[in-house]
Design a protein around this nucleic acid. Sequence first.
DNA 1: TCCGCAAACCTGTCCTACAGGTCTAGGAAA
DNA 2: TTTCCTAGACCTGTAGGACAGGTTTGCGGA
Lengths: 235, 235
Amino acid sequence: MNAAFAKSSDYVGHAVAAIARLIREQDLKPGDRLPAETVLSSQLQVSRTVVREALRSLAALSLLELGAGKRPTVAKLDDEALCLMIDHGVMIDQIDIQQIYDARRTIEVRTAALAALRRTDAEAIQIIAHATAMAQDLLVPDKVMEHDIAFHLAVARASRNPLFALILGAFQNVTRETWPIGWRSRSSDAERQAMNALHLELAEAIAAGNPQSAAAMMERHFDSSLKALVAAGII
Amino acid sequence: MNAAFAKSSDYVGHAVAAIARLIREQDLKPGDRLPAETVLSSQLQVSRTVVREALRSLAALSLLELGAGKRPTVAKLDDEALCLMIDHGVMIDQIDIQQIYDARRTIEVRTAALAALRRTDAEAIQIIAHATAMAQDLLVPDKVMEHDIAFHLAVARASRNPLFALILGAFQNVTRETWPIGWRSRSSDAERQAMNALHLELAEAIAAGNPQSAAAMMERHFDSSLKALVAAGII
DNA sequence: TCCGCAAACCTGTCCTACAGGTCTAGGAAA
DNA sequence: TTTCCTAGACCTGTAGGACAGGTTTGCGGA
């Protein structure tokens, strides 16, 4: 299927491809169990070692879930694997903070609009709750940060497009590292309260089902964050 | 670092975390070599089996590159791993085509604008070349498709944000499967020529360095594609 | 100083073994 | 008859040894 997994005499690569094909052809869904390692081993005509390494590869991408005593199980995607990838990309200077910021902005303006259109009432309440909590814990940066991150993820989930939630979730680690910089760059309490107020207005636009307003608010949020970072000389 | 890799007595998970930490703490860059498996094995106090499975996990995410006789080397991210993940998400109905379409639209409107601002002359020429080639091979759908995909990826690369190229690249496989549907849904040659004309106009807007126009063109492109698919009853 | 080669090094694969977790068939109890 | 429970079968996680063949390195010669 893919070049990197297809070098001739790359047994593990072939096994990965074969197992991925197996999932596809048998139309397996999350929770469904694959054949045992020894069975795969004899079916694919490779050692159990090779099968195990192939299974690990797929588990790393969270296509599979492995567990002692349990047969390999088809899994749902989650953002952990992607998170590791993004972190690595930043580490090796393949991606910089500004690029992540731009990607977030691009996507989050959309998730805000979609969330306004599609959020359930429960989601609206949750989003407002995070925005409110940010204002309440104004003196405890760690709490503000966690609510901020949770706020944005809640919006992403409310957009009803799991791709957005997946991608934005993958930025979490990076955000956790850069967030305090943004916080410190807002030197006065007034600025910090203004940021929180913006979150709350955004939450209310989403709750009110107003996509234009939600998108505009999200744009303003990113504009002001970016301005704060630039002012602090970070970007 | 991550929950899924931290279950106590999950040796492989610990090894993955330790190796990822190693890369981070030593600030290794693509091409740099890690210690040999046996060295890692004794440093981490686990068997070579465990080390190998950990290395495979990281290689699956393309954080590492493995090769017979070669020590593990730090790698650049590429879209293959992400591609497998997206394909799987579609397979298990976690993601549907429309959601991918919306993600693409959201991101590609941005890449079009950025490409107009940042493209090099060589990139502008290449983008125009793909658009031209689409029109030339109008009777050979496969060729049109490949140029279409290459066109969009070239725009993504010209945006100078590797995240966008990474994400859009991951949609390639899905696009290859759905593209022919869109093609067939444009029943007349006139419609198909109109689509190609739109690509060419977009390419020219990017070459002319006009971001507003490029973004608007990209929006029109997605609107008309979506309309064609809806008309065909696909979405 | 440069080149080439042999030895040292390293990975890919296979095998065996066993501890301990999980599942299931079938018997016991209600 | 149905439900519950358990013993045994099944399965994975980890360890360690072996060897083929690819890669790197440092030595010796030109």
